[in-house]
Each structure stands twice: as C-alpha cells, then as structure tokens.
Design a protein around this nucleic acid. Sequence first.
RNA 1: GGUCGCAUAGCUCAGCUGGAUAGAGCACCUGCCUUCUAAGCAGGCGGUCCCAGGUUCGAAUCCUGGUGCGAUCACCA
Length: 594
Amino acid sequence: MNLQSILSQHIIKAVSESYAATLENIEFQATRKDFEGDITVVVFSMLRTVKGNPVQIGETIGEYLVANVAEVSKYNVVKGFLNLVLSDAYYLDFFTSIQNFNSYGKVPATTEAIMVEYASPNTNKPLHLGHVRNVLLGYSVAEILKAAGKKVYKTQIINDRGIHICKSMLAWKRYGNEETPQTSGLKGDKLVGNYYVKFDKEYKKEINTLVENGFTEKDAKAKAPILLEAQKMLQKWEAGDPDVVALWKKMNGWVYEGFDATYENIGVDFDKNYYESDTYLLGKDFIQSGLEKGVFEKDADGSVWCDLTDEGLDRKIVLRSDGTAVYMTQDIGTAIQRVKDFPDINGMIYTVGNEQDYHFKVLFLILKKLGFSWAENLYHLSYGMVDLPSGKMKSREGTVVDADDLISDMAATAKEISEELGKIDDFSAEEKTQLYKTIGLGALKYYILKVDPKKRILFNPEESVDFQGNTGPFIQYTYARIQSILRKAASASGYTESVEIRNLTLEPKEKELLKILQQFPDVIQLAAGNYSPALVANYTYDLVKEFNSFYQNVPIFGAENPAEISFRISLCDAVGSVINTAFSLLGIQVPDKM
RNA sequence: GGUCGCAUAGCUCAGCUGGAUAGAGCACCUGCCUUCUAAGCAGGCGGUCCCAGGUUCGAAUCCUGGUGCGAUCACCA
C-alpha cells in the first residue's frame, strides 16, 4: 500500500475519533518549498464534513499521525494546511526498494495492444519541420505507451498517389532530361521535390498568360494546360497505364530512399507501412452496410451522406455520386483494414495536425455508428502547427525548413560549442561526429517535445535552438557528469554495492532528489494517459535541476564516511538511469561524455 | 457567420483532479573554476495569469459573455 492510502486511513480514523465525522477522501499535495515538510494534507477541504477551526483540526490530525504512523516524524500547521515531515528511513526504504534502476518506472507489457500512426507524408516532396514535430510526437507517445505497459504497433500512411505526385512526374518528364539521384547526386526526395516546385512555377506562368488573354483567375487556374495534363496523367495512373505506373514507381522509389534516410537520421522506425495506393479503394464496401443500418443515406443523385446534424456537426459525404471514394471513405476502410491486420489491437492513435480536428471527429463518430467496438478507443493526437516568423511554411514557395538541413545545422552548432569548450579532444573523429549528432538531435527533439502538443510552435531559425537552461543538451550534460562519477567510482576501491544505508541522515538535497525519483512511475502513467511527452520532458528537467544543485553543493567522494559515499554514488546512478529512461521515451540519446 | 483550439514575466514555456506569497529558461545584473565536467551552481531584476461577470472558505485553473490570434466548415486530400 502506498503512503497516501496509509495516511488517509489514519486521518479518517483520527477525525472520526475526535470529531465524530466521516471523511470521504483526503486531499494531498506536495509541500511548497517555503514550508517545512514533504507532503501536505489540505484541511480546508474537510470543512464541509468536519465542523471546526481548520488549524485546530490540523493540529489534532498531525499529533495523531506522529504518534501512530512510523513514517511521519514531524508536523506543522499553517492556516488550513497540515504539513507532514516524513522520516529519512521512509525515503531510504523507498530507495532500497528500487531493484533495478534501468527498468524503474516502466511497467511490463500487457496484451493490451494499440496502433500509433505517426506519419502521413506525401511522396512529392521532402520532409520538413512540420513532419518532424509529427514524427517526434508520435514516436515518443508510442514509447511512453510501451513503458506504461501497452503493446504498440507503429505505423505510417504514405500518400503515394494523387494529383500531387503526378505534378512532379509531369514536370520531371518535361524538364528532367532523365535526371536521377545517381546522375545528380541529389537525395531522391529532394530531386522529386524540385520538380514539384518546377511544376508550380510553370503552372503559375500559364495562369498569368491566360489571365492576360482575358480569362478570370478562377478559370485560368482550372484550365491551365499543364494542370489538365497532370489530371490526365492521374486518370492514366488509375487506369493502370504501364508507362505512367512505371514512372510513378521509379519516382516514388527515389522518394522512399530519401525518406528512409531522413527517418534513420531522426532515429524513428515503423512496424508497418500503409500505402494509399493500396487503401484508396477501401471502405466502399462498408458504405453499403452503413446504408442498410441507416447510418448513411443516399441522395437522389446517388451520392451517399452521413447526417451528423444531431451531434452538432454537418452532413458529411462518404461516397461521390459517381460512386468513387472520398478521403473519409478511405479512412473508414483503412481503419477497418488495420484491425484485420492486427487483430489484437483495440484502438488507434492518429498523430495528425490540428487542422484535421474536424475530420477525425467525424471519422470516429462514423466508425462508432457503424458499430465497431474498438471505435471507442480512437484518439486523434492533435498537435499545433509549426510556424516560422515569416508565417506558414509552404513547400511550393520554398519557405520550408528542411528536416535534413535542420538536423545537420543542429549538429554543426553542437560541434561549434563542443570545440570551443574543448572537453572531448581525446575523442576520435568518428566519436566526435557521433556526439555532435547526439547533442544536436537532443536539442532539437527536446525543444519540440517539451511544449504541450496542442500548442502551436513558433520556430525561429535565426535564433535557432538553445543549448543552455531548459534544453536537451543541459540534461545530456548532467547525464555525462554522472557517468564521469560512476567511472571514477568503478576505478576507486572504497565503493561497495552492498552497504547498510537505512541509518543514514539525509541531506535536504538528497531528500529532494529521492522525492522526485519517487514520482517517476506516476509521471509515465500520467504522460501515457494524456499522450503528452511534454510531461516527461518537464519532469526530467525538474530532476536534473535538482541533481545539479545536489552535485554542486554536496560532496560525493568527499562525504564523511564510506556509507555516505556509497549511497551518494548509488543515488547518482539512479538519477542517471532515470534520465536515460526518460530520454529514451522522448527518443533522445544520452552521451557518456561531452 | 457556425464549430473547435489557444491567450501566464521583454522572449520561449511550466503550473496534476480548484489550494498557501503564480514558477523555470533565455535576455539583463552580481558572485563562484588549483576540488566529482562552469553546456553548471548561488543570487538579483522582471506579472492587470487577455477583459468583465459568476460559482465558493479559496479561481491562472471551473461556468457565462466578450476581445484577440489560429484552424475548420468542398462530390480536395
């Protein structure tokens, strides 16, 4: 039983004995720094059932707890707050109870499975900063869910077909001179992206010409020859035209090579890929059964709709009058397909930007109406857009922050700072490169993940990402310091693992550290429940901040006796392990030296 | 116009189911490297928690209304 429930029982007993009142539940909170104590009982909230002066009630309970609960060593009452001081033995017992620092906080996997979709790139352009946030968030949430005991399948849906890729294909055919990644030395996704931009340029030229010749802007946009040709290409693709399909395969292949490189660079992976070219026809079969169940209705022209006006939403089309599928149809089909592919999953998480909030609201509602039991466990992990000081990122206009460039820029900054500090001069060139990447990526990932997912991020490339204060490198640095201590401990003779620590007197900073360590399992569960890596990031920062204060103010190897030394080293070890675990949940690596 | 989201220090962000004097980092200012890594530590400066009502012992947090910013409301994806 945990401490709070033990305390609750005694408090209820104390109150019923002294005041003849029965408390339902007791409210606890961490004691504020400015008061003495470790945990605080809020007496105010008892006043509804217990009549009396809050200070007096607090005193009564406090006295009772000190007398009857071994863990409570002292108490004080401030206004309606009863602050309890817990014994050092309580914290030391907790520390002893952590068997394995490396697995501390995590829960063993259960059979409860869930799928996390965390990327949905189009194959006509390279990945940019917006994709980076998407991928980092989803990957981290997947890792957090695993740590919280879920079985997780990671997936992405690749939008490999449609008018966008035809635009790149057409431009390449016209202007490409058979250029390939090999002949140009360009990364495949970059090469294809260039032709998407090229298409847009030509398209705009044609629009201007048409407008000069008296077309309205709207007509010009719809009638530009290059666009008509792209549309024709899409029709050919859908008809299975061998030449078009061959070109499509070739160019998509280039893009996948590029994506793979970027994903590897970022350090994320997927258990299963879904391709829109496989799924875009799915879902139509379920329209019929939905019609029979009365979930959908057919209009006179043959189009099929779902009426959601009762739920405060609009009517939503699910099948065109010509019988073809829309995006919604496809998403219905894909969801069902995924449950067929992975029969043990009982829910899905879609990591998609908040511009699609409405779409997912409707999708989930329709799936529920269709009667799928797992539809109750669908969650749209909606995140805010990443904007630049200049406004929105637009691929066509080239105002995007490219993912690969961003990562190498961060590593370059890490290199600059590292060289200036000159602490790793003994590293080999390869070790240095690896370290710069670890730090650069750590800075980037932490910067993005520490922010609440639903808030939008303003990214300023000029000011770039910090390496001091509440940042990834700061936390990595602390980890490296700890490793340095552990190396020294391993080579020294005085440090033995099995030492009796129960009778030690804790320094305030040691106690604070133990308190924070104690929260870790709860933080993982909370982060899993809220799908929020930010909670893990902020927790890690609090831990590290406290550790650094301990490190700089309490001697470790210079402690008074061997038991103290041994305990402090062990405490460092535990903090290091928790940093490592927490960062792995964020997809961030930690260096042994920096 | 309807719907959804956001608004906290100059800037970037925390603030758990309502709790004590609203916290960090950056920036600015002051100290601390002959000791376990100064990417650090100790401290200072800095607030109309968007506004107005309401709920109650108590509101940054919950409710209502408003303002501002963003998104969305296609037989597009």
